[in-house]
Design a protein around this nucleic acid. Sequence first.
DNA 1: TCACAATCATTAGTGTACTAACTAATTGGT
DNA 2: ACCAATTAGTTAGTACACTAATGATTGTGA
Lengths: 145, 145
Amino acid sequence: MSTDLLALENQVCFALAVATRKVIGAYRPLLDPMGLTHPQYLVMLALWQDSPRRVVDLSRALALEPATLSPLLKRLEAAGLLTRARGADERTLDVELTDAGRALRTEAETVPPRVAAMLDMSVAELDAMRATLNRVIAAADAVAA
Amino acid sequence: MSTDLLALENQVCFALAVATRKVIGAYRPLLDPMGLTHPQYLVMLALWQDSPRRVVDLSRALALEPATLSPLLKRLEAAGLLTRARGADERTLDVELTDAGRALRTEAETVPPRVAAMLDMSVAELDAMRATLNRVIAAADAVAA
DNA sequence: TCACAATCATTAGTGTACTAACTAATTGGT
DNA sequence: ACCAATTAGTTAGTACACTAATGATTGTGA
C-alpha cells in the first residue's frame, strides 16, 4: 500500500505552517490590548533581554532580514516603545527601549502562562517540541549555508 | 534560579515561527523551477487530491481565509494551472486543474523525498512531529471556537 | 411569498517577509 | 593617503495572511 507522498495531511511543512498561524492567532487576543502584533512582541522580547542593541544584532537574534525589521522598528518607534538613533559608527542604528517600552514588560509577563494553559501541554512536552523545532531550524540552516 | 519566562529562546511560538520560515525557505530552490511559491504548492497539493472543488472547501482544507485564497487562486489561474468558474450554485466558484496543472504533479513527486533528506530526520521522527503539531493545531482551534 | 437570515466570494486596508538594488560609512591593503 | 571591498541600513517590488466590509445569491420561516 502506498501512502500518498503528496497528500496534504502527510506534509510536515503544512502542519508547521498551520500550527504557526493558529498559535499566532491564539496570541492575538492577548497582544491586542498591549497594542502589539506577534512579530512586534518578539522584537520586544529581544529588547527586554538586551537594550540598546543594533539592527543587525536584532536581525540575527530574531532570524529576520534587516529589510523586514526596518519598517517593523519604525512602527514600534511610532508607538513610543523604542527609539532609533545612529551609533558611534554612523552606519549602525541603536535601538533602545523607552520607559513605556520597559514598562510594557510587566503586562507581557502574564502572556506565556496564559498561552501555555491554552495549548494544554505539559512543560516537558513543550520543551521537547522546542528541541525538535530547533533541530529542524539547524537542519534547514545547514542547507541554506 | 528562575528561567526567564520571557526569554526569546524559551518561546515555543518563536521556535515555531522560525522553523516554518526556514523550512519554507528550504523549499524555495525546489519550487522555483516549478514556478510555485510554497502557499501555491500547498494549493496544488489540495487540488491533486480533489479537483474540481469550491473555494470554501479549499479554505477549510488549507486552513486559510477565503480572502487569502482569492488572489492566490487568481495567480495560479494566470499561470495556467487551474480554471475558476461559477458553479451550479451561482455563489460558489469551482476551482479545477488544467492539463498543465495535472502534469505538474509528476515534477512535484520529487519534492518531498528531497526535503526529507534535507531535514535529516527519520520517518518516525517526522511522523511524531506532525502528530505533535496536529495536537497544537487542535488546541489552538479549541480556543478560537 | 416574501422579508430576512445565512452563505460564498471578493475588495480594501494593515502588517509581515522575502529578494534585489541602493546609499552611506568604514576598513584594509598597497 | 587612496581605492576596493565590506558592512549597515533602507527602499522597491512581490506575495501572503488577517479582519472588516461589500455584493450577490440562496435558503427559510411566519
